[in-house]
């Protein structure tokens, strides 16, 4: 239940931050980018932390309270119990992410419309001015407004934004599953959380490190290559879920994803 209060506070914070930033930058496209950056930042942080912290204690708490015994004493296969717990955690994330996405899309749409109508007004005035002033159809503002309008249209709510949201959710799902798995044999909740974060960071950083290593002039020795493969086998590549940066910059998603 507390998650939803948290969510509420978080969205209020995003909104406040977004409104505040509008005082800093006049560039309309940038305003929308900031909105998206903030929201995706909040979403990623929420999903990552929630997927780890909330899942880490699901099973240990049931064991500690002996609720686990009453549940497993019913005709419930263990797999079902684990899967149910997992789905429960994921459902909270899914609902939160859905709410956040709807909020973001709505804000983004409203802001985009407002900015576009401002631009349209500006363009009309600029055109009138250009027609009245002799020898002055050269109007830099008109050019800029045209470019701005087309980039503004590309910055609104879109399916690719949804892809970023899906990627964030999928990442949370993988992370949640890993955490749940670790929590079944970990001796303490702290241990679980630490292991999960380590897996997360290794999975995120390893591909980048390897990449820059590979492209370095010295290259990689055979043994190091083996080591890298071993790390790759154990740790999932979380960079695969990192779409936000590209999507905010307006890249189109490759078909394979």
């Amino acid at each position: 239940m507390r998650v939803f209060y948290f969510l509420l506070i978080f969205s209020a914070l995003i909104l406040a931050a977004t409104l505040m930033i509008q005082n800093f930058t006049q560039d309309p496209t940038r305003q929308l980018k900031v909105m998206k950056d903030m929201s995706f930042f909040a979403m990623s942080i929420f999903c990552t932390i929630f997927a780890i912290v909330a899942t880490a204690n699901l099973i240990p708490k049931d064991i500690e309270d002996r609720t686990l015994y009453t549940i497993l004493a019913k005709p419930v296969p263990r797999f079902e119990y684990l899967f149910g717990k997992y789905l429960g955690g994921m459902l909270v994330i899914f609902v939160s992410v859905t709410v956040m996405t709807i909020l973001l899309s709505a804000f983004l749409y409203l802001r985009q419309e407002a900015l576009l109508s401002d631009l349209q007004e500006y363009m009309q005035v600029a055109e009138q001015e250009a027609e009245q002033a002799p020898g002055a159809i050269e109007n830099e503002g008109l050019d800029l407004a045209r470019v701005e309008a087309s980039s503004l249209r590309a910055q609104g709510p879109s399916w690719s934004l949804l892809a970023a949201v899906v990627a964030i959710s999928l990442q949370a799902m993988v992370l949640g599953a890993i955490t749940l798995c670790v929590s079944t044999f970990a001796s303490s909740g702290l241990f679980t959380v630490v292991v999960a974060f380590v897996v997360f960071f290794v999975g995120y950083i390893e591909p980048v490190v390897v990449d820059s290593w590979r492209s370095s002039p010295e290259g990689i020795s055979g043994f190091s290559n083996l080591l890298i493969s071993a790390v790759g086998v154990v740790f999932p590549n979380f960079q695969s879920f990192n779409l936000v940066d590209g999507i905010v910059a307006g890249e189109t998603l490759p078909s394979g994803w």
Binding site: D211, S229, G232, V233, D245, A249, P254
Partner: peptide
């Protein structure tokens, strides 16, 4: 992990080709 790796590598290559990895260093 061994099954997963080729998939991950394909995704990674796709993202790289689509400019998703510029600035990631």
């Amino acid at each position: 992990g061994a099954v997963r790796m080729p998939f991950e590598q394909r995704i990674e290559a796709g993202l790289k080709a689509a400019h998703f990895r510029e600035g990631v260093t």
